[in-house]
Computed example of a mutant assay.
Amino acid sequence: MYDGAFGDRLGRSFQLNNPPVLRSQTRRGVRLAVTELRIDQVGYGMTSPMGSDDAYLVCLNLRKQSTHELWCDGRSVCSTSYEGGTTYVLDLRRDPIAYIGDPLHSLYFYMPRQAIVEARDELGTKSTVDLAIQPGDCLRDSIVNSIGQTLLPIFDKAAAANQALVDHLLQGLCAYMASTYGGSSTRPDIVRGALAPWQQRLTTQMMRERIFEGISINELAEACGLSAGALARGFKKSTGLSPHQWLLSRRVDLALDLMTDPDISLAEIAFNAGFSDQSHFSRVFMQRMGVAPGAWRKSLANNKRVEAA
């Protein structure tokens, strides 16, 4: 079951096992968390998908990255460097993945939009509940940095003894982000010929619900009030992928989660992720990740042995 992009779930996206995590929740019971991730190697490469979720990751970079590229919705949105002490935001509705070139040390604050809604209700504001920060924009925010630096020592202590402080800081950060950066959606302006935002959300949701059996272009088009051709062209313009390619990419996301279990064979993974057979799975996986499934799984096992040593 998908449990949010924090802790072990987020760690798997970076091929890290059981990273330190601190958890809290809002007064209405919405989950908040912050995960500390460290990668000491140079040229780490691509992360795995972080999971599609109606939430943000607020990332505090504790170490400089001279090479960093971000993809959202299957297309590159920025290629830049960033300094230590800066912050950027990932919208998990956009399936972000990243290329990491330098050793990394960052804190990733998991912040569902429900929590931002709650914070804005408590603040008595009426504006929208998106964070108005474009993908790839790096901010030097002293409040985010101070909260992160205060939390850092707690990862090495008994979290339960400091839970009240963790609650205060994570809930306070959520309220701060809502009041300071709340505004229009982080999504870019609609590209001419692309789907409207509601059409893109509807089609991707329908495909997620039919990830195993698939869904026809005609069904997607009818739901959006478009012809099949207009739907296909608009979807490609919006995401950089055809609907079929997008669906295959989500099946690879599911397979990546399943591959962390060493007791499941690749043939079983292919079947459970919705591929017609292992050969089809291997071809699609190679196109998406650049390596064969067996090589990817071997790298996961090697990383776990290194961590355990």
Rank of each mutant, 00 (worst) to 15 (best):
G45C: 04
N302L: 10
C78W: 05
P262I: 03
A115R: 02
V129M: 09
G148F: 01
I190A: 14
P243E: 12
Q15Y: 11
D73L: 05
Q149Y: 11
P188T: 07
L202I: 07
F235E: 06
G85V: 12
I147A: 11
D121Y: 13
L151E: 07
R75F: 15
V166F: 10
M207T: 00
I154Q: 00
R251V: 06
R38M: 12
E83T: 12
Q134S: 15
S265N: 01
T260P: 05
P20C: 05
G11N: 07
S106W: 05
G172Q: 03
S238W: 01
C224D: 00
D137W: 07
C59K: 10
S249F: 12
D40M: 13
D73V: 01
A5D: 04
N17D: 14
I264S: 05
G4S: 03
D40N: 14
L90S: 09
V42C: 11
D257V: 14
I133C: 01
R233Y: 12
D40S: 13
I211Y: 08
R31C: 11
S299M: 13
S142V: 15
T260N: 15
T260Q: 13
R38W: 06
L10P: 09
G193H: 11
S276Y: 08
S106T: 05
P197Y: 09
F109V: 02
D261E: 04
A292W: 06
L10W: 08
E36C: 08
L22I: 10
E69W: 10
G234K: 01
P135Y: 10
L22F: 04
G193Q: 02
T125W: 13
T128D: 15
P49A: 08
E209T: 10
L300Q: 12
S142I: 13
Y176K: 02
L16N: 05
D167I: 00
G182I: 06
Q205K: 14
L70W: 07
G85A: 02
A232K: 09
A5C: 07
I211H: 09
A221N: 03
E219A: 13
G29P: 03
V306D: 10
N61Q: 15
A309Q: 14
F235I: 03
P188I: 05
L266I: 04
I154F: 01
P197G: 08
I39V: 10
E307V: 01
P96M: 02
A161W: 08
D253I: 06
T47E: 09
P262T: 05
S185G: 12
R210V: 01
T35H: 04
S146D: 15
S216R: 07
D130G: 14
Q41S: 06
N18L: 12
G11L: 07
L195G: 06
G214T: 08
L151P: 03
G84V: 05
L169M: 15
I147P: 07
D156M: 01
L247W: 00
